[in-house]
Amino acid sequence: MNYQNYQLSYKGNGLDYFRIMLVNFILTIITFGLYYPWAKARTLQYMYSQTTFQNQPFVFTGTGNQMFKGFIKALGIILVIYGFGLYIAVSNIFGRGGTQLVLLALYLVIFAIMPLAIHGSYRYRFAKTVWSGIRFGYTGDRWALVRIFFKGIFFTIITLGFYLPWFHMNLRRYLLCNVRIGNARFAYKGEGAEYFWINLKGYFLTILTLGIYWFWWQKELFAYFVDNLALTKDDEIMLCKSMATGGDFAKLIIVNLLLIIFTLGIAIPWVVTRTLAFVMDHIALDGIINFDQLRQEQEDYNDATGEDLSDFFDFGFII
């Protein structure tokens, strides 16, 4: 296979997204919020469909029905945990010390739910991501993720937060290295130590330059994400490279802020569109993978409980 450049781009426009947001808002209001899972599916379907790789759009094949079922399950899980905690606290059946122990155990359960929710979210989201007819997939093990999480939280606490960059990179590496598209797999090689220095440098230079360096800090974080990412298939590889400069980031973020302030937030769909286009336009991809020969290898997965639990905890889609 010959060496070549690949194209990634976002073709959406703000007006279309604005219209989708309005319709979703209207339907969500008149159904007293029950439409939310379908609204989310519509939004994801739109955004995926406007993202193209080699001029082929991505497809989000998840449905509102699946996410509604997941939403009900997630709600059940949350209610059981909080209801149990509330019951223990109010009834005091275990005495004062016993109650505190049970509540501590509940906190641990909630901590454990976070990686489980991320795992579920990744499985569902990638199983429902399709490009050129080929499904993505997430092949990570949920208990391995729980272990990374607990180790990360433990060391973050005893190092008073200094371990956080290592925790962050261990998590990202594990998640991304388990993402597949058909028979091709992603690889990420970011390291905690390097990530720590980028952040330390960014923090102090931002203060020293009265905030101006912040945009360059964002550029470095973006580059650290993109440059360490690769896709491999058998002995073929595609490499990613960030083309964004600090100046690009300054322009993007300042214009976004001005748009939001002067339109009182109405411009949000345009801001999201610009930002997605910016991200896609500033990733250069090259390598020797022949995408015409991808094989369908990842299985489908319909349980959106993790996806909805992540929504409840409001951690979005972590990478």
Binding site: Q45, S49, T61, V130
Partner: peptide, 22 residues
């Protein structure tokens, strides 16, 4: 289901199998 992307109408025939037509 359909999507308009870059001068093409995409018709998704089978949601789970993701067979489609551009």
């Amino acid at each position: 289901t359909t999507a308009h992307v870059a001068e093409h109408l995409y018709v998704y025939i089978n949601r789970s199998g993701a067979a489609y037509l551009a």
